[in-house]
Write a protein that binds this DNA or RNA. Structure first.
Lengths: 159, 159
DNA sequence: GATTGATATATTGTGCACAATATAATTGCA
DNA sequence: TGCAATTATATTGTGCACAATATATCAATC
């Protein structure tokens, strides 16, 4: 592992509490840095990354309940509800009520929200152009993070 | 890639906007889920994960300026300063001033903060016991996230 | 058809995460 | 010496992220 910024003296006893050994720090800082990198690409759309994630879910399938948005974005309702309100405020979605189940909202794209999809197509393209990872590295990283995610959810379900 | 929760009809045109294709979502949701999993392990210490990260930095090297904490945690000063205030409030650290440079703080562990280190040793152990990833998977994941992080920082420096 | 339990969403409170900006001390150097 | 540029930290404002809790509707069953 590279430690260009924190070389240890050779012969140092490795500690389980060494920050450089923390997989979670690596994962966390990479995720934060990646979202920071999305920012300028999303700025023309006026979206944050979590807002973009919600829009992706809706471009995939429109007129869905909040539950589905949570499932596809992997965020909790307490996170998603305020995001939906902001997207409504921007005029990108509506938050109607289901006819068959008064508890359920039906989240629908407005014309403006639908129109944004075309503009958004450039975001993954621009991101890919940065060539941050090779295609193989990208696939491997996604495979590993998906594995980890699944096991964490599974573990969480047991507790 | 597994898509147990969102099978697409075979022959569906793959979209660059498909949520399941987003490496960033995989990374983000795995990082969030991992930090959630740390929570019960850190609860006996009364720490959040970012607070724990700061403590790791101080257990590695005590009596350091804020800059070093930022570097080792990979968090910004705007994030770290309030965390340091909370840790000070818990009686784990002090935030003195440097004699040689009045701008600089010297962040030092208190006796209580130093004592916590022994208790914290069990956290990585308990985490490892969950066997979320094999040692090889763990190493590979850390290698890839470190690579990504470095390239993102590099890219950010250019802009 | 009333009650019990489950489900869908919303609210509240705490703690990040960071950009932008402010403040203050130090350093360089004209 | 004086002052411009740099550096260290703090502050402000916005938007997550989530646990815990609340509320309202629906479903099941007695």
């Amino acid at each position: 592992m590279k430690q260009s910024r924190n070389r240890k003296p050779s012969g140092t006893m490795p500690s389980v509490l060494d920050p450089d050994q923390q997989i979670c720090r690596s994962l966390y800082s990479a995720a934060n840095a990646l979202i920071r990198t999305y920012r300028p690409l999303l700025e023309p759309l006026g979206l944050t990354y979590p807002q973009y994630l919600v829009m992706l879910a809706l471009w995939e399938k429109d007129a869905v309940p909040v539950t589905r948005i949570c499932r596809r974005t992997r965020l909790e309702t307490g996170t998603v509800t305020p995001i939906l309100k902001r997207l409504e405020g921007k005029g990108l979605i509506t938050r109607g009520r289901s006819d068959t189940d008064e508890r359920q909202r039906v989240i629908e794209l407005t014309r403006s929200g639908r129109a944004m999809k075309a503009q958004a197509e450039s975001v993954p393209v621009d991101m890919a152009c940065m060539a941050l990872l090779t295609p193989e590295e990208g696939r491997e990283l996604q495979r590993l993070t998906e594995t980890l995610y699944e096991r964490l959810i599974e573990h969480q379900a047991k507790a």
